[in-house]
């Protein structure tokens, strides 16, 4: 058994959010440069250039890349041979609290969703997904999710007969309905299978994959490629003002499901998929 102090978790969470909020991930920065090369709309090119300039400014000043520094979401894999000394969830929330204060990140969480909507003023509580795994380590993957794109996401419980064509159509229609709102170019996470609740998680986790990674399953890899081609034919383009680069990537994650079901979730991220991971 390995003993891990809760403070270690706090420090790790704090550091991840400070790191991911203030620059584009390397894969995204590379993809944005090639998007700039490929984009056929002059206006679209100008917008991509502004976003690349924005990243450059942030790397110099330490500013956050977007004022919406997001809701803090954590996927934590806890080794079953680990003993955590202290309160695990409080340790995670303390890390979030410290990062959003020290990093001059915007606090965007309201306590009650429907009535008072009073800001908690420290960006907590975080959403924490915990999974028990083998081993004596803790792996933390963190995502700062902006809501301009989160609001444009959708779930549909499809009939199995909908097939690949139905899934592709749902993905493309979701992106078209979103239009300019999620700050294109976007990264599209798609979950297929599981149940109503888990399919959304699959879609969200899919956005965390590199924009250059393709599904190891050849059929789903082809699905990712087809979906990306269709999305980039919509004409939405950078900033939604028309162009040929609407998405940088479509990442699909699948899971077993029920004989009666074909759940599909589309989780949209803006280009700045702010995520990172650490192993303790």
């Amino acid at each position: 058994m390995r003993i891990i102090d809760a403070k270690t978790i706090t420090d790790a969470v704090r550091q991840i959010f400070l790191d991911i909020s203030c620059k584009l991930a390397d894969d995204v920065a590379t993809a944005m440069e090639s998007a700039w090369q490929q984009e056929k709309s002059q206006r679209g090119k100008t917008i991509l250039r502004q976003l690349l300039d924005n990243d450059r400014i942030c790397r110099k000043t330490g500013d956050c890349v977007c004022q919406d520094t997001g809701m803090s979401i954590l996927f934590v894999e806890v080794g079953q041979d680990v003993h955590i000394e202290g309160n695990f969830e409080e340790a995670v929330n303390q890390g979030v609290r410290e990062a959003y204060t020290a990093g001059y990140l915007r606090k965007s969480i309201v306590e009650d969703p429907l009535y008072e909507r009073k800001n908690t003023e420290d960006n907590t509580p975080a959403i924490i997904h915990t999974r028990l795994v083998q081993g004596d380590q803790i792996r933390i993957e963190a995502l700062a999710k902006g809501f301009g794109s989160e609001n444009m996401s959708a779930i549909r419980m499809m009939a199995p007969s909908a097939g690949e064509a139905g899934v592709l159509d749902f993905i493309v229609q979701t992106v078209k309905k979103a239009g300019a709102n999620p700050c294109p170019p976007i990264v599209v996470g798609v979950g297929i299978g599981g149940d109503f609740e888990s399919v959304a998680g699959l879609a969200k986790r899919a956005t965390l994959r590199s924009v250059f990674s393709r599904s190891p399953d050849e059929r789903y890899k082809q699905l990712e490629i087809k979906a990306l081609q269709l999305i980039n034919k919509t004409g939405i383009g950078p900033g939604g003002l028309g162009g040929t680069v609407t998405a940088l990537a479509v990442n699909v994650e699948q899971a077993p499901t029920h004989i009666a079901g074909l759940p599909v979730a589309v989780n949209i991220s803006c280009h700045a998929v702010r995520h990172g991971s650490v192993v303790i």
Partner: peptide, 13 residues
């Protein structure tokens, strides 16, 4: 008017 979503540090200048 639209401003570029995601260009927050640039716009703040």
């Amino acid at each position: 008017f639209c401003a570029t979503g995601g260009a927050a540090a640039l716009l703040a200048q």
